[in-house]
Structure formats: structure tokens, C-alpha cells
Amino acid sequence: MTIPAQAIRHKYLRHNKKFPHVWCPGCGNGIVMAALLRAIYRMELSKDEIVLASGIGCSSRMPTYTDFNTLHTTHGRALTFATGLKLAKPSLNVVTIMGDGDATAIGGNHFIHAARRNLNLTAIIVNNSIYGMTGGQYSPTTPFGSKSTTSLYGHIEHDFSIAELAVTAGASFVARATVYHAALMDKLIEQAMRKRGFAVVEVISNCHVQYGRRNKLGGAVEMLKTYRDNAVTVKKAEKLSAEELAGKITIGVLTDREMPISTEEYKKVRQRANEAEGEL
């Protein structure tokens, strides 16, 4: 299916929002936003039924530009607001967009519990390995040894692997893409949104301004090329040893499993509560 880019822009971007956006030239956030809009376009969802909720950070500014029901929450808390929305009105199609620091540092607790709770939500996490908006401090996904404004002499902590964390925490669907693999990304986002259960898509993205520059990784183009060269599919990764996988980015669907979702289970709770009431 060919996707008319202009039609998507006209349909989904807010005509009454004062542009320009806050993102730096070459930022991966725009690629993620376009992939999300393509997925929504293909799914033929009504704009009224979609909620796009975010936390705080560069990628979390995305809802401001898109013409859905949009919610820009507090730092790390997007999933808590989304949980309330979804439980109160299960007919809404709720997508959250968060950064790596937002989702796994300040919002880490909410993230693992949302995965465990298994509501029918989609979480897109744009992982650029740094706190970009505040000027380049290390985040939970900054690699060991990297430089940031708060690890000038080399980072001494180890990084989270967000997708694997989501798998362990119990998410129904977990996938990973990079901003180089834009076509794959929108397919994964579509799969995640169609999935009944908590679905996570981690997108490895470039912050060449705050992260790339300090670590001599080049500009946006060079960083994207690195993603191209280091990405291995889930299938291929299965055949590689741990040493061979070092420094690689596994892309594709990491897990896709069926589990009861809480909004459906709560309907049964209501039924059981009323039956118990009848017995009294």
C-alpha cells in the first residue's frame, strides 16, 4: 500500500498548532511520528477514538502536533494517566509515547507494572540513550563508558535493554526497530496497536546533538548508517553467540503472546460482584 505523505500530513497534523516543532534538524523523532501516522492511516482509525499520551522530553512533545485526543502528562507518568483513561473508557485506543529516561528512569516503576497489568495499551519508547531536552545528561540507556554532560570522564553504570525489560515484566507484545528501519517501524507499530494487550515498541533513535557529538559518532546520517550496519533481525540473532551479538541491535518482534487483558477481566469482576450481591 502506497502511503500519500501529503495526505497524511494534512489529515493528522494540527492545522491550528503554531509550528515549528521543537526538534533539532535530523532528529529521529519526526521519523517515529511519521511511522505512527502511517500505521494509524493504514488501520483506518477515527481520530476521535485515538488518545496519544506522553510524558516529558523531546519525543513527548509529539502529541502537541497531532490531531488526536492528546495528553502531555508529567515526567514518567504517561502510563499512569493512560491506565486511568483506558480503564474508565476501554473504547479509546490509547498510545503512549515516551523517551528512554521518561519510561525507564523516572517512570520505570509504572513501565514494569503497566506491562504486568496488561491493559490494551501501546507504548512507543524512543530510545536515544540520553536526556536530550535538558542538555545531554546520561540516561538509563547510556552505554557504559560513554560521555555525557554528567559523565564527562566516562559512564560507569550499565544500560537497560528496554525491550528485554518489557519481555521480562510480562508485556504481551514487544518489538524493536531503529529510525533507519522506518518501514519496519510502522509495521511494528501497527502490529502493536492491533495487539490486544500491553504492546511495546522500542525505537532506537539518534540524538546526534547531545549524544552523538560528545561521543564522536558523527551527525544524524552517520548515526543512521551505524544503525543500518549493526542491526540484526530476531531470527538472525538467535543463531549468534553472545559475543557476536555485542554492539548489535536486535530488531523485529521479540515476543508476541496471548494473555488475559485487564479491561476484559474487569468485566468479569463486575459480573461476579453483582452475583455475590444477589446471594446476600
Binding site: L71, T73, F81, L85, H110
Partner: peptide, 9 residues
């Protein structure tokens, strides 16, 4: 956070 979300719904 959850009660704010529910109220918005």
C-alpha cells in the same frame, strides 16, 4: 495519574 486519566475520559 490514573484518576486524572479517568476524569479526562
Amino acid at each position: 495519574g490514573a484518576i486524572i486519566g479517568a476524569s479526562l475520559a
